[in-house]
Simulated scan of single mutants.
Amino acid sequence: MMTINIDGREIGPEQPPYIIAELSANHNGSIDTALKIIEEAKRAGADAIKLQTYRPDTITLNSDLPDFQITDGLWKGRTLYELYEWAHTPWEWHRTLFERARKLGISIFSSPFDTTAVDLLEDLGAPAYKIASFEAVDLPLIEYVARTGKPMIISTGMADCDEIQEAVDAARGAGCQQLAILQCVSGYPAPSEDYNLRTIPDMMGRFGLVTGLSDHTLDNTTAIASVALGANLIEKHFTLDRNGGGPDDSFSLEPTELTALCRDTKVAWRALGKVDYGRKSSEQGNVKFRRSLYFVKDMKEGDVITEDSVKSVRPGYGAAPKNLMNLIGVKLSRSVRKNTPVLQSDISG
């Protein structure tokens, strides 16, 4: 089966969904808030907390030309540089955040946006890397990450099938042995109908990789539904307060919602189970409410069973009703009492 392993946690179809809480910009400039988010992610049951590692100068240019202006959406009115100056997680925080996560026992890794970010994360001993959707076309970055030998998760928002294949080939070609991809819609927030979750099993068949969902919808419905279609990883943005005013707060989960996501995706995964037409453990006590054949009169050994001597009723401890016509005309091999089940041992031959 397709699996990867992050920090000793196996991820794949035979394991519960791996839940990644995306801290992103939801610290809103406060390291104390960032530390609290890590604590709440652990309390909610997430498997990992994820950062984004960039500075404004490593992700864009300081320009106010039209190409760099954001003219609609959540961040309208800012330049790219202004947005990333506002949203970035200072590099000097990273060690403290990594140490806190490790102390709490929750995995921590990041999305690097250039090679210097990868170098920083390698110094911190990051156990895995996530390639953000908009960087899925940055094949040199993917190759640089692959050469670390760590597991890599590539988000595919905005990438077409050929671009996903190019990213996968770049990762594999540079030595990545543990690779996963995420179905993603790079809208903030994204409507659930844009997700086309039936793409997930197609991706699994097409690319042969551990596959999951990077979910930017406003609730957990899409993420839970994705588990039924085979998603092995779920990534959701996470904040302490959706009304906090930060760049990503408005489309992030709050602590009670992340707790529900961690719980409900596991319930959905367990419900998938296996192909099984047999009687389930929860049904064993309900045989009483199933129909079967019962004698409705006292009869002696050698008497012939007639239509008026047996009846299909509840409970289900006797012969199956489908056998009724086969029993008519058969002699009893022993005496039977009224209101007792028809058993094989009652019948001659």
Rank of each mutant, 00 (worst) to 15 (best):
K50V: 04
K50D: 05
V168F: 03
L253Y: 10
S335P: 08
K130D: 13
K297V: 06
R206H: 03
T256W: 11
G105Y: 11
P341R: 04
N220F: 00
H27R: 06
F295Q: 01
Y317H: 11
N326C: 00
T115Q: 12
L104W: 11
S282Y: 15
H94F: 06
I108A: 09
S24V: 00
A41F: 08
K322M: 08
K236G: 06
I154R: 03
T53L: 02
H216D: 04
G175A: 03
F68D: 06
I131M: 13
N326H: 11
I20G: 02
E39A: 15
I38M: 11
L65K: 13
L272P: 00
T156S: 15
P315W: 10
V342E: 04
A136E: 04
L121Q: 09
V145D: 05
E307T: 09
S30D: 15
P66W: 11
K236Q: 07
A260L: 12
D219I: 01
S333V: 05
L240T: 04
Y294Q: 02
L65Y: 06
I20Q: 02
D72L: 01
A128I: 03
S335G: 15
S186Q: 11
Q183G: 02
E143I: 01
L332K: 04
Q15Y: 13
P321L: 07
G77D: 09
F238I: 05
L124V: 08
N5V: 13
T256Q: 10
F113M: 13
N286H: 13
A174E: 10
Y18S: 05
D119E: 15
K288E: 11
N243H: 13
N26V: 01
L124W: 10
T53V: 12
M2W: 00
K300D: 11
D248C: 01
K288Q: 09
L120R: 15
F295L: 01
G205Y: 03
P247C: 02
G318C: 04
K288M: 10
R172K: 15
T221S: 11
F109D: 07
L61P: 00
A132G: 10
S345D: 13
V267F: 10
F113W: 15
P127K: 09
G8K: 04
D298P: 03
T79M: 06
A271M: 13
R172N: 10
V210L: 03
I19Y: 02
P189A: 12
A170K: 03
D114H: 14
A170C: 01
Q15E: 14
L332W: 02
R291G: 00
